[in-house]
C-alpha cells in the first residue's frame, strides 16, 4: 500500500520519463540478427506483455534489460542508469540488476540453499541486511506468495508452481523497481499455472512495473496495459490488449494470433 503511494510520488517527481527505454538496440548471434533497431519505452507502473513465436527474440529483448544479454549497438536506460553496447556498461550493470528483478522459465532456485535462504541471499550480500532483517522480509514475502510453511525446505522438495512462487518472492526481496518475467509458466504443469499467474496478478494490483514474456494470451489480455508483438527480431506491432488481440493491423500479428488463439 505504502509502497505504491511512494511510487506514484516518485513518478510525479520524475515527470513522465519512462523507467525503461531501449533506443536503437541491435543484437547479432553470429549472422543472425536477433534484435533489429528495437525502440521500446516502459512507463512507471506499466505492465507490458511481449508476445511472439519462439525464436522471435522476445526473451532476448527482456534479457537485455538487465544485462544478461550483451547487445552490439544502441542504448538501454533503466531507472536513470545506462547500459552500453558490447558489455561496456561498467558499474551501472550491477546497479541496474539490483533494481530489476527477474523470474525465469526454469525457476533457477539455488538448490543448495533452503527456501528462506534463497530469498535472503541477495538482501544480505548486496543490501547488507542482517540475517534477522532479511529473514523477516523473507517470511513476509513467502507468506504473500503462499509458501510460508515451506521456508525450511529445499527447492527440490517443492512443486514447480511453488518453486516459481519462491522465485518471485526471491526477486521481490530486493524491492525491485521493475520486474521481468521470461515465460514464467512455460515449464509448469497445467494445474500449477494458475497459482503463479495469481501471484503475478497480485503484483500487478500493487502497481509494479512489469515486462512479461508469455504464451498465456488470456492472462496477457487481462493484465497488460500494452501488448508488444515481436517477430524476426523486430517489434511489428504494439497497442492496448483489446486492440492488438481483436483488431491486429499487421498480417504477421494476425497470422500469429490465429495460430495461438485457435486451440
Amino acid at each position: 500500500m505504502n509502497d505504491s503511494v511512494n511510487r506514484q510520488e516518485a513518478t510525479q517527481a520524475s515527470g513522465t520519463s519512462p523507467i525503461v527505454r531501449l533506443a536503437g538496440v541491435n543484437k547479432h548471434f553470429g549472422r543472425l540478427h536477433v534484435m533489429q533497431d528495437i525502440d521500446l519505452s516502459v512507463a512507471q507502473g506499466e505492465v507490458v506483455v511481449i508476445i511472439g513465436a519462439s525464436g522471435s527474440g522476445k526473451s532476448t529483448l527482456i534479457r537485455c534489460v538487465n544485462g544478461l544479454e550483451p547487445f552490439q549497438s544502441g542504448r538501454i536506460e533503466v531507472d536513470g542508469k545506462t547500459l552500453l553496447p558490447n558489455g561496456a556498461s561498467g558499474k551501472s550493470l550491477q546497479a541496474v540488476r539490483t533494481e530489476v528483478g527477474m523470474v525465469f522459465q526454469q525457476f533457477n532456485l539455488f538448490p543448495h540453499l533452503s527456501i528462506r535462504d534463497n530469498v535472503t541471499l541477495a538482501p544480505r550480500k548486496v543490501r547488507g541486511m542482517t540475517r534477522r532483517q532479511a529473514d523477516a522480509t523473507a517470511d513476509r514475502l513467502l507468506e504473500r506468495v503462499g509458501i510460508s510453511d515451506q521456508a525450511d525446505k529445499h527447492p527440490t522438495q517443492l512443486s514447480g508452481g511453488q518453486q516459481q512462487r519462491v522465485a518471485l518472492a526471491r526477486a521481490l526481496a530486493m524491492e525491485p523497481r521493475l520486474m521481468l518475467f521470461d515465460e514464467p509458466t512455460s515449464a509448469l504443469d497445467p494445474e500449477m499455472i494458475g497459482e503463479v499467474l495469481d501471484a503475478m496478478r497480485e503484483l500487478v494490483n500493487d502497481g509494479m512495473t512489469m515486462m512479461i514474456v508469455t504464451h498465456e494470451m488470456g492472462f496477457a489480455r487481462e493484465v497488460a496495459d500494452r501488448v508488444v508483438f515481436v517477430h524476426g527480431g523486430q517489434i511489428v506491432e504494439q497497442g492496448p490488449p483489446d486492440q492488438l488481440f481483436d483488431h491486429p493491423r499487421h498480417e504477421r500479428t494476425q497470422a500469429f494470433l490465429s495460430r495461438v488463439l485457435k486451440h
Binding site: 538487465n66 550491477q94 540488476r97 530489476v100 528483478g101 527477474m102 525465469f104 533457477n108 526477486a171
Partner: peptide, 12 residues
C-alpha cells in the same frame, strides 16, 4: 541459469 539468477539479483 544459476549464474543468471545470481547476477539478476544484483550479486556481483
Amino acid at each position: 541459469g544459476q549464474r543468471e539468477a545470481g547476477l539478476s539479483l544484483g550479486l556481483s
